[in-house]
Design a protein around this nucleic acid. Structure first.
Length: 421
DNA sequence: TCTGGGGTCCTAGGACCC
DNA sequence: TCTGGGGTCCTAGGACCC
């Protein structure tokens, strides 16, 4: 038998968190709203029973649902993050093989528990509820995809008592027969439409289809999904969180914004937050992207959704540098005459801050500095953006340079560098 | 009037290098 | 000097997830 993988998922996580801190909410319909109280992002079972959909715009929902019972909360991510950490801590007592997959989900490797899956897991559920106040459901299968299916079955089937085990093919077939293509992890509307157009209408047909054919039409992602449905693991547990590749701060505006100065004010606030995130993670960014959006829910209005990026001469976590670059991009993107509804900043090319020992920003703008920048730029273009990690020791005379393993030619000589550039 | 925010991975094509 | 193949990088866009 293959190693069982469990998916532990907190039930109605944000709503359950609110309940932990306000027990009067128990048994009542609760919804939690997104930023600007824009739309519904969590619902208690009682709210689901009222027919409130995930992601439903709140302004439509409150027109429709007239129940005075309905309790509404704005989201409180600090609280949810804290509760999440507590839940994960409890789960770590039940296996060393723990992958924190999202704020409310974890994959657990259950090697060694094959003969007592049910007892071990029900004990895990009881302890999590007892120690954190958060109810969880568990699905178990030989692959992550089947564990996801099992978890969904556990939640939707009261007789499951919060636990569904799909280690045998017969049980897998039964569970897959009861769901739609769109219920499978990794399949959303577009892919489901395309599959159905090719005659693959349900999960069992997908499981039977030829992985190589699927790969040609849909790519490697769906090929792996077919294999996972057959019980062949393609996605292992990631026990250590992978390093961040990007940091994004974006917001919708409460009302449309038209002027450059208002956009700049908003964007600058986002950049400051992004720079704080960078520093908190001990990272520096080498590339900055800015984007704008008009209101996509107003197709009758002129639409404009530009974005542009800028490579920085040296990776930095300095707020002032990032502000300068971000606003420079914004001035290029901005066109008057549009009603902007959203803006954001994305920081990319993240490297550990320890690798940038200084910055060129503070140095005098001499011709020598210009030729150094241009030489580095050329080398980085040729060998990859991060080939030359630039380091200025600031007060000391001259510049030092470092290279990472990608660099074929390591040098500490500036004249050699300029010649190479 | 009112419709979230923060991510990842993959693909495809062109540029460039060896 | 010519040729081809293989590889990486870059960018934009699509699709999906929680």
């Amino acid at each position: 038998m293959s190693t069982p993988i469990a998916l532990v998922d907190c039930n109605n996580f944000y709503a359950s968190c609110e309940r932990v801190f306000d027990p009067r909410l128990r048994g009542k319909p609760i919804v939690v709203l997104s930023n600007n109280d824009g739309c519904v992002i969590a619902r208690s079972n009682e709210a689901k029973a009222l027919g409130i959909a995930m992601g439903e715009p709140w302004h439509l929902c409150k027109e429709r649902i007239k129940t005075r019972e309905l309790i509404v909360r704005s989201s409180n991510y600090t609280l949810y993050g804290d509760m999440s950490a507590r839940v994960m801590e409890v789960l770590s007592h039940f296996t060393p093989l723990l992958e924190v997959y999202s704020i409310d989900e974890a994959f657990l490797g259950l090697a060694g528990f094959e003969n007592r899956l049910e007892g071990h897991t029900q004990s895990l559920r009881a302890k999590t509820q007892q120690w954190t106040g958060i109810p969880v459901s568990v699905g178990i299968g030989p692959t992550k995809t089947l564990a996801k299916v099992a978890n969904r079955t556990a939640k939707k089937t009261p007789a499951c008592n919060g636990l569904c085990i799909l280690m045998e093919q017969e049980a897998q077939t039964k569970a897959l027969a009861a769901i739609e293509l769109e219920d499978i992890w990794g399949i959303a509307r577009r892919t489901a439409e395309k599959l159905k157009a090719l005659g693959i209408r349900d999960p069992l047909q997908l499981r039977q289809s030829d992985p190589k054919v699927i790969r040609r039409s849909f790519g490697v992602v769906l090929e792996r999904l077919v294999l996972e449905l057959r019980g062949i693991p393609c996605h292992g547990l990631e026990l250590a969180p992978p390093p961040k590749q990007s940091i994004c701060v974006s917001r919708s505006f409460g009302r449309p914004v038209t002027t450059l100065s208002e956009l700049s004010e908003a964007l600058s606030a986002y950049i400051e937050r992004a720079a704080e995130k960078l520093r908190r993670n001990g990272l520096a960014a080498g590339y900055v992207t800015v984007f704008l959006h008009t209101n996509r829910f107003r197709p009758e209005e002129p639409q404009y959704s530009p974005s542009a990026g800028l490579a920085l001469p040296v990776a930095t976590a300095d707020t002032a540098s990032l502000l300068r670059s971000g606003n420079e991009i914004l001035r290029v993107l901005y066109k008057p005459g549009f009603r902007y509804k959203k803006a954001g900043i994305i920081l990319l090319d993240l490297i550990p801050q320890a690798e940038t020992q200084g910055a060129l920003w503070g140095s005098p703008d001499t011709p020598e500095r210009q030729s150094l920048l241009s030489a580095i730029d050329t080398i980085n273009r040729r060998h990859g953006r991060r080939t030359v990690q630039f380091a200025a020791s600031g007060v000391q005379r001259g510049w030092q340079m470092r290279s990472d393993q990608k660099s074929p030619n390591y040098t500490t000589s500036w004249s050699a560098l300029i010649a190479a550039g």
